[in-house]
Every structure is written in C-alpha cells, then in structure tokens.
Design a protein around this nucleic acid. Structure first.
Length: 405
RNA sequence: GUGGUUGUAGUUCAAAAGUAGAACGCCUGCCUGUGGAGCAGGAGGUAGCGGGAGCGUUACCCGUCAGCCACCCCA
C-alpha cells in the first residue's frame, strides 16, 4: 500500500478538532434536552430496500450500497429522517415524539467546500403534532442552540410552502436562488427553463412571490415565538425561501449568520408526508437539521471556541532519573486518584529540558518535578507554565493546589 | 454526474527541460535540574501513483488517486 491517505470525502479528526466537535455536540445536546427532545440512534446499515427510492433518483445514485457477508443487500445511513420514519412505524411511541439524533451519514456526492462524503447530521424533529407550537418550538430551540454556541447575530428565515401556490418545483428552486445569484439571473433562468414566457412574465412571477404578505401560518408561528419572548427581528419572513426541497408541506426555515456569509448554517421545516411512508398513515412532522461542519467553520472564523479546549491534561509529572521513576509514578497515580488529569513523561532517560518542552508544546499548564533535592525534603516542585513561577509543596498541598486550579 | 485548478522536504511555498532550494517546524549544542527569545550547527525529498513523447525531466502529454473551487444537489 503506497497511498497513505483517506478516501475522498472522508476525514481524520486530530485531537484539537475532535475537542471542538465534542464541544459543539455537548452544547447542542444540552439545549435539545432543555427543550424536551430525547436522544435516538439508529444503525449505520439498513436494508437497501428500505432506503431505495426514498431520496429520489439522485439519492439512489449517491447511496453507499453493498452486499454483506450474508448476501443481504444493505445500504449505509443516508439521512436520519427515513430511519426515523422506520422507527416510528416499528415501535409504538407516545406522540408527539420529540427526538434529537446526531450521527454520521454517508453520501457518495462530489466533495466541495463544507461538503464531505461522511458527515455528521444533527437533527431535531417533533413527530405527530399538527400544532404550530411545534414549529415555533423547533425555531426557538434552534435559536437557543446557536446562542449557546456564542453566535450573536443569528437570523431565522422563514417561509410557508403555500406562498408558492401552483408553481412548478423547478421554478421554486430557481426562485430560491434569488439571494445567491440575484434577480437578473433568476429572471433569465425562469425564461430559459420555460417557467416564464419572457422576462416580463418572469418578473411578474417573481414579484408576486416576493411581495407576498406573511401567511396565516407564519403569523401564528410568529405570535407563539413572541409570547415565548423571542425577538421578532430574529425571525424574518422570506417569501423566496424554498431550500430546494420538495418535501416540505408547511413552514420552511433556514438559519443565517450576518458575520458568516458563506451560506446557511442549517435548515428545516414541516414535512407531513414523510414519516408515514412505512405505515401508510399521514403523520405530521416538523424538524431542523444543523449543518455541523459549517457551524464549526463559522465558529472558527468568529473565534467562538473557548481557549481552554486545547488541553485537558492539567499537569505533566516529569521523571528526573531512573532512580526517581517510582516517585513520579506514585505521584501521578495519586494525582489521578484525586481527579486531576495528569500525564507522566514516557521516556525515563530524558533531560528535564526536553520534558518541560514537551509540556509547553502540548500546552499542559503545570509541570511537576521530583529531583534528588525534592526527594530529600519530601516535597515536589510545581511549575506554572504560563508564568514560569515555581514553588515547593508537599504532595498534599500539591493536590490541593492543582484541584483548585 | 459535469467543469476548472492544484499535487515538490513534517508544514507553507520557490526555482529550473539536464537529477531540487527557502522559511517555519524538528533534532543537537551554547544552558552538566527546567519550555516559550537569541546564536551556531544538523537531520529530512528517487518531486502522489502509473504510463507515454523526448538524448534526458519533478517540469510536456494521457490515465488514476487526492486536495481546492464552482455547477447539479444538498448538510
């Protein structure tokens, strides 16, 4: 094997990145649970038959499929909604069922900025409720989630599928691009695709959409949000918004951030015809999907990650010499037993210089040295790496000092 | 799936059709018990992989793999 590399669209996450991802995950999880969403996980593999045809022609092409060792035709999780639909028909869960799910999905799509073949989806969905309170709660929870990550200028764009009336899906998809490609391009494309007779006709169609007043659904959702104390300026009615998806049946929402103008951070809406696909019943649903990778990218560029994410080890215990190895080993064990995350240097015959340097490189904030002098006096030296100050302490005092830092 | 672009030391990048350099990083020493600065040395590349044209190439052509960007679509 000469090619040492990962598969196209698949990534390694080095420690620093994993810490960031875990940080975001735990924040999201806290907020989701605060709003009453429960965790759900489903298998990576499903029967191919179960997923086939659920994502359109495009989806069938992009799905990872293969035969397992028992000759079963299987497919890898392509999204979290179809598995959710399966779960809803396989178990009798009390409705409305509110769940969050944060698992990898796989799509053999071409890669691009922020787009990978293996990526994490973070979904919240409420199944089984027609109430607009469900829609509003999804929005409220979404806003709260982004706020908890430190975003200050998050906006929710909201629309109602009904705004588009009888317009073709193709035309809707073009109008959805208004913000991205501009009015002129939209008009031209409408004509080019025969969705409008000429430019004037296209202008008419577009104007009719963009001048729409908020529908009843929108107003009601906004009322609920207002009662919940959410700033109405954060939820903006945007009649051209469609998200390119044809499965939405009511509200459509998208999250944007002013300081991060590279596309939406996530999207969702109401989809009443999807969850019942296996049971044949109509089961209402509304949800939101967080664009995890893009959210991380945005947080990076806005410097929203706390600095102390970098290192969890609090102290490095050095080994002064082979005669004193056991002293260091005993100490590191005591520190760990006291709940202090500690590391012992792994090469016995290394100079102290090298060991301290190692702590510096790994941003370990404290270093403990036990040399002959310390050992004679039954103390240890604690070095604060940020200030360079050192003090002599008994082991008890050391544990106490580190525990409070 | 389509199109563009890139692939040279750990990293970021140079040069030049005739077998490669810098910066940063790394290692060693100045500093025989201590990091982040400085100085002096040092290690490290058969140029993604395969094929072709050519006296000869890492440099040209083709394929492949991968990265980046865009379209389609979407997270």
């Amino acid at each position: 094997m000469k090619n040492i590399q990962t598969l196209k669209g698949f990534r390694d996450f080095l420690p620093q990145e994993v810490r960031k991802r875990n940080y975001v995950l735990s924040k999201l999880k806290n907020v989701f649970e605060m709003y009453g969403f429960e965790p759900l996980e489903t298998p990576v593999l499903e029967y191919e038959e179960l997923l086939n045809g659920k994502y359109g022609d495009e989806g069938d092409k992009l799905m990872y499929k293969f035969e397992d060792l028992g000759k079963r035709k299987v497919a890898m999780r392509y999204d979290q909604t179809v598995p959710l639909a399966r779960v809803m028909s396989q178990y009798q869960l009390p409705l409305p069922f509110k769940r969050y799910q944060m698992q990898n999905v796989w799509r053999a799509d071409n890669t691009q900025k922020g787009r990978y073949r293996e990526f994490l989806q973070c979904d919240i969905d409420t199944i089984g409720s027609n109430s607009l309170i469900s829609d509003a709660e999804i929005i409220a929870c979404t806003l709260k989630a982004y706020e908890s990550l430190g975003f200050t200028s998050i906006k929710i764009l909201i629309n109602d599928k009904a705004v588009f009336g009888e317009l073709s899906i193709r035309a809707i998809a073009i109008i959805d691009k208004l913000k991205k490609i501009g009015q002129e391009a939209v008009l031209q494309e409408l004509v080019k695709t025969n969705n409008a007779k000429d430019l004037a006709d296209a202008k008419n169609i577009l104007d009719k959409i963009t001048r729409t007043e908020p529908t009843k659904i929108i107003s009601e959702i906004q009322n609920v949000l207002q009662t919940m104390g959410i700033d109405e300026k954060k939820v903006i009615f945007t009649p051209s918004l469609a998200r390119g998806l044809d499965y939405y049946t009511g509200s459509i929402i998208e999250v944007e951030c002013d300081e991060y103008p590279y596309g939406s951070l996530g999207g969702g809406g109401r989809y009443d015809n999807l969850i019942g696909m296996f049971s044949g019943k109509k089961i209402p649903a509304v949800g939101f999907a967080f664009g995890f990778d893009r959210t991380i990218e945005a947080m990076d560029s806005l410097h929203l990650f706390p600095l102390d994410l970098e290192q969890t080890t609090k102290v490095l215990v050095t080994i002064f010499s082979s005669e004193l190895t056991s002293e260091s080993l005993k100490l590191v064990t005591m520190l760990r037993d006291s709940g202090i995350s500690s590391e012992i240097y792994q090469e016995e015959a290394s100079k102290i210089e090298k060991q301290v340097k190692y702590a510096n490189q790994k941003s370990i904030p404290y270093v403990v040295i036990i040399g002959p002098e310390e050992n004679d006096k039954n103390v240890v030296t604690l070095r604060d790496m940020s200030t360079g100050k050192q003090e002599s302490l008994s082991v008890q005092k050391l544990i106490h000092a580190l525990a409070s830092k």
